[in-house]
C-alpha cells in the first residue's frame, strides 16, 4: 500500500489518508505500533514536519495515540470509527463525481442505477 501523491492535495493529507487506508485494511491492527515519523519521511522522502502533520491528523481524531518514548499506536475502535467516517463521506467522494461524469456522458439516472447494481453484484 502506497500513498498516492496525486498532487491534487497537500502531501500531509496524502500521508494521513495512506495511514487511514492501512488501518482500514488491517495492515496496522488496533493497539499495534505504526511506523515512526522518521520511517515515514524516509520511505517517501518527505520532510519529517510534513509526515508529522499527517500523522497528527489521526492523533487529533483519536485514531492514533502516543505512548511516551515508544511511538504511535492504533487506538482501540479506530477501524470502526474510520469505517463510519468513510461511509459518511462516500456520497461526497464517490457518488457526486460519479453522477457528474454520468451526466457528461449522457447516461441517465436509471441506466446509472442499473450499472451500479451490475457492478456491485460482480
Amino acid at each position: 500500500m502506497q500513498p498516492t501523491f496525486d498532487s491534487q492535495k497537500p502531501l500531509f493529507l496524502s500521508i494521513a489518508e495512506w495511514l487511514e487506508d492501512a488501518i482500514l485494511a488491517g495492515a496496522y491492527k488496533e493497539e499495534s505500533q505504526v511506523p515512526s515519523i522518521t520511517e515515514i519521511s524516509l520511505s517517501y522522502k518527505i520532510n519529517p514536519a510534513t509526515a508529522l502533520k499527517g500523522v497528527n491528523m489521526l492523533v487529533d481524531s483519536g485514531l492514533l495515540y502516543k505512548k511516551r518514548g515508544l511511538g504511535m499506536f492504533v487506538a482501540t475502535g479506530a477501524c470502526k470509527k474510520l469505517l463510519r467516517r468513510r461511509q459518511e463521506q462516500f456520497y461526497e467522494d464517490f457518488i457526486r463525481p460519479l453522477a457528474a461524469e454520468a451526466k457528461r456522458l449522457e447516461i441517465g439516472a436509471d441506466e446509472l442505477s442499473a450499472m451500479v447494481k451490475r457492478g456491485y453484484e460482480q
Binding site: 522518521t38 524516509l42 519529517p48
Partner: peptide, 10 residues
Amino acid sequence: FYKILIERYS
C-alpha cells in the same frame, strides 16, 4: 542522498 539527508535531519 535525499534519504541520508532526512536521516541526518531527523
